[in-house]
């Protein structure tokens, strides 16, 4: 059972995020990078399945040089090897372009299962796994809060708007997992030492046989027309409760016609 886990490096939400003037894309150089939080659950899911079924976990990430830190962290958790797609021409890619790069990289790898996070905290798109399933012509088992692999098939519990669906498909398949699917492990000291020797292959667009048109800021089909800071919220009224706090809220709600 060979598993590829997709890991994206995202700006730390604790650090200041800003947009590149002109392009309107995220200024990735200005923010500290961390593993997209939900991807840690994808890594853990991959490790657990590989431990149960045998096989290797490969971490695939498309991103700038710094993304290597996130790949390393996944290797410290126990993944076997990494593939880093790195090319200046990728910068500024939207989800559709990113999914094209990921699909090209996946077609160079051997796998039974691709596991992604359900959503990245910077893009909040939640579209890349579905796009990959479409591009690769593989079953889409996304938004899983539980993943079971047995007998060449995968079954997930998919979160839906009004509850959940049980979804089943033969392997190979694309899965995405939601937050809290499992308890992502912390790298052990041994894991940290072992990770230093694990291979990470670096690939460019030409290694993938991908032309740069359709990729990057210029190649993306979406573009930012302009952006502005959100209008500041008018300062609110803050009162201290001296026995009338609840009544004060009720008066405010009545004034605004909520009650």
């Amino acid at each position: 059972m060979n598993i590829v886990v997709l890991v994206k490096q995202v700006p730390d939400t604790e650090s200041e995020r800003r947009l590149v003037p002109g392009a309107g894309t995220l200024d990735r150089a200005a923010a500290d990078g961390v593993i997209n939080y939900i991807d840690e659950f994808a890594i853990e899911a991959g490790l657990q399945i590989a431990e149960a079924e045998g096989g290797e976990v490969t971490i695939l990430s498309v991103g700038p040089g710094k993304a290597l830190d996130s790949i390393r962290k996944a290797l410290q958790m126990g993944a076997h090897k990494g593939v880093h797609v790195l090319d200046d021409q990728i910068a500024g890619s939207d989800a559709l372009a990113t999914s094209a790069v990921l699909a090209a990289a996946l077609s160079k790898l051997e796998f039974d299962l691709v596991i992604a996070g359900s959503e990245s905290t910077d893009a909040r798109a939640g579209v890349v796994p579905a796009m990959l399933a479409e591009r690769l012509g593989l079953p889409q088992l996304t938004l899983a809060s539980k993943v079971d692999v047995a007998g060449g098939a995968v079954t997930v519990r998919r979160m839906s708007e009004d509850g959940f669906d049980v979804v089943e498909a033969p392997l190979p398949a694309v899965v995405s997992v939601v937050e809290k699917t499992n308890e992502p492990r912390y790298p052990s000291f041994k894991g940290i030492m072992a990770a230093k020797k694990k291979p990470v292959q670096s690939l460019s667009l030409s290694d993938l046989g991908l032309a740069a048109d359709g990729i990057g800021l210029g190649g993306s089909l979406t573009e930012v027309a302009d952006f502005e800071p959100a209008p500041p919220r008018a300062a609110g009224v803050i009162v201290k409760d001296e026995g009338e706090g609840g009544t004060a809220v009720a008066s405010f709600l009545a004034e605004r016609k909520f009650i």
Partner: peptide
Amino acid sequence: TTEGKEVAGRLAVKTGAGVLTD
């Protein structure tokens, strides 16, 4: 919605049209 966005993503791949989410 989570599902709506996935439909949008697949449709973008199929049609080659740009997709704007959220």
